[in-house]
């Protein structure tokens, strides 16, 4: 079994990450790490907990939000001014799990987990990563590209997630197997700004439709610049269903997920039309 370690500061944590590389796994609330350990995986020598680093603050200032990496789903669902993110937080397991699950951990969750990440993509969030080479601040999309390229080794310690007060309307929808505490079939998040009856900005993100939550450029292009009418929404839904790459697992089949991507994206966009 790996050893549980804590660090006294972000600097120390970054040092431990650099020192131990892939033999160290960072644990937020433990909802993923502990499950994987229970399954018998033994790749790690160290599990680094983040308790005591006080990374769980939620701040709103100067038109922007900053969520500490260990802010829990319970903290986030209590934010009335972030309705889409709060709605997603409410869908992360049951209450006991929400008390443990962190927003930072959700970024690293394997699809179809990642209900918070899908909203953060739609919000065009930026990550704050403390690394041995200083702070990095990639967008969440850039982060996923780099992370995949690096074989899913985190570049450093995720300390916070930041995003601007959304200009448009943000909607999160999840297709689950039951009303509460359901594994995800898929989830969608849309952030659309409209002016003079035209879509001026569109961010559409899907979860459960690829290896991690991701934006769907094809669907965004389908609605950008025009009126958000039934035809445009249908085009976006069809484009997303065609472009996505879901998996088959015990929760749902690839076929069903693909269908639900289209259905839920249509329903989400229809709320903004």
């Amino acid at each position: 079994m790996p050893e549980y370690i804590r660090s006294g500061s972000v600097e120390e944590a970054v040092g431990l990450i650099a020192e131990h590389g892939s033999s160290l796994w960072i644990m937020g609330g433990g909802t993923i790490v502990m499950q994987v350990l229970e399954s018998g995986a033994d790749y790690w020598q160290y599990i680094m907990g983040l308790d005591g680093l006080a990374l769980d603050g939620i701040e709103r200032a100067n038109g922007s939000w900053r969520l500490g990496a260990t802010a829990t789903a319970t903290q986030i669902r209590a934010q009335p001014d972030l309705p889409a993110l709060a709605a997603a937080a409410r869908m992360v397991g049951g209450p006991a799990l929400q008390n443990a699950a962190t927003v930072g951990g959700n970024i690293y969750a394997r699809s179809p987990q990642g209900d918070l990440a899908v909203v953060l993509l739609a919000l065009d969030a930026r990550l704050h990563l403390a690394t041995a080479d200083g702070e990095q601040a990639p967008s969440l999309g850039e982060f996923y590209d780099d992370w995949e390229a690096a074989g899913r080794t985190p570049p450093g310690l995720l300390t916070a997630i930041e995003f601007a007060e959304p200009a448009g309307e943000v909607v999160f929808m999840k297709c689950g197997r039951r009303r509460f505490n359901s594994a995800s079939v898929i989830s969608v998040a849309v952030n659309v700004a409209q002016k003079d009856g035209k879509v001026t900005e569109a961010r559409i993100a899907l979860c459960g439709a690829g290896p991690h939550a991701q934006r769907c450029a094809a669907a965004e292009e389908a609605i950008l610049g025009g009126k958000l009418d039934d035809a445009a929404i249908a085009r976006a839904a069809a484009a997303a269903a065609a472009a996505c790459a879901p998996v088959t697992d015990t929760v749902a089949s690839e076929w069903y997920r693909r269908r639900m991507v289209g259905v839920y994206l249509r329903r989400a966009l229809a709320q903004l039309a």
Binding site: T31, M34, E38, P95, A96, N99
Partner: peptide
């Protein structure tokens, strides 16, 4: 005082 799952909590945490 907060509802948690003992199985997901490392004792050391």
């Amino acid at each position: 005082g907060e509802l948690r799952l003992a199985c997901l909590t490392p004792a050391e945490a």
